[in-house]
Design a protein around this nucleic acid. Structure first.
Lengths: 192, 192
DNA sequence: CATAGTGATGACATGTCGTGTCATCACTAT
DNA sequence: ATAGTGATGACACGACATGTCATCACTATG
């Protein structure tokens, strides 16, 4: 290699998050990020496809992990049972890679910037597609598979949001169970 | 006014959609769009905040229409009943502004470009927030309001997608009823 | 009919993003 | 030693997006 910088990617992520929180996403230029990380602008775009991606590394692995989880689940499980399984086991893994403080700071930055919120929506959309495919692979019909994926993502996103709103106070599995219960109550209501 | 161009906005929309379908979103430059519309680049950005917005005009009105619908509905309706009401009456209005051919061409352009799909997700996110607020205004608790909004958007988006997949064959109200039925069947399944 | 005001557009400059290309440097294998 | 490999720096460049000012057509008012 040439002048390789140990942990270059991590330094870029940290510098970017700091600057986004200090002066905002739009007001932060890529040269400012790379200056703080001790690299050049060109190198930033070798690690990240665009400025927003610096807050979304590793997220692209989630869909395949979900696919793996679904393939391993007992075939007897119905869609809603499987959703419950997946969400509770996914919840356990959320703090494996990052600590709560990082997650909260990252979310503050994302919430403050529409462009980042939009990128976050794409993340959930990709997750939804993986779930849908997983359901179809288990023999669920297309329409039900699509809806089950939507329900799973809706429940997960809602639970995580509320969990972060409360600074992780009740733990995430508890929050997911609570959200699933509310979803059951809602949909068991008369609908027409 | 100065050299005003009648229907400038509409001409820009048409020119953009044509070019996006001819050579793709990324390959189309703003000067190419404005040249076809007989205007300058600067004028394009007076009508649209960015290149993507040229395919999303008028969408910003949807949330307030939904809010109005929800406020007018009989207070006795439960969340799922209200969802059914809103979706069926929204379905009727979808072809008021644009014809099916335009809607299909527009969707083809959006599907072909990740950046446009992302913008589409934001549209639904804004709709979801309006629905959530509408439910809260009717006295629904926060968690249920959020979930009801998610369920409504999921059902609507799924129905519209399938409707367009079939070139509008069964009409949209029928597709919505079918999707709502599938959602009821799914969520009435045992969940743990 | 003259004149001032108004609103849309054109023209120009500029900053940032994102990419292509090539040189360079450190490290590795043989 | 020497050639190969992979990360980085340096530079150029096109596209996007915005600020600013001039200009033109149209309108209102006297």
């Amino acid at each position: 290699m040439g002048r390789w910088q140990p942990g270059a990617r991590e330094r870029l992520e940290r510098a970017a998050l700091e600057l986004f929180l200090e002066r905002g996403f739009t007001e932060t230029t890529v040269p400012q990020i790379t200056a703080r990380a001790g690299l050049t602008t060109r190198t930033f775009f070798r690690y990240f496809a665009d400025k927003r991606e610096v807050l979304f590394t590793g997220e692209e692995l989630v869909p395949e992990r979900v696919a793996h989880l679904m393939a391993q689940a007992p075939p007897s499980l119905g869609p809603m049972e499987l959703i419950t399984e997946i969400l509770t086991s996914s919840a356990a893994e959320i703090l494996e890679r990052r600590d709560l403080d990082y997650v909260l700071r990252r979310r503050a930055a994302i919430d403050a910037e529409p462009a980042l919120r939009e990128r976050e929506l794409r993340k959930f959309s990709l997750l939804s597609e993986a779930l849908e495919q997983g359901f179809r692979d288990r023999g669920v019909d297309d329409l039900t598979a699509r809806l089950a994926a939507e329900v799973a993502v809706s429940t997960f996103r809602t639970a995580v949001t509320r969990w972060l709103d409360q600074h992780g106070d009740p733990d995430l599995p508890a929050m997911i169970n609570q959200t699933l219960s509310a979803m059951r109550r809602l949909t068991s209501t008369p609908s027409a």
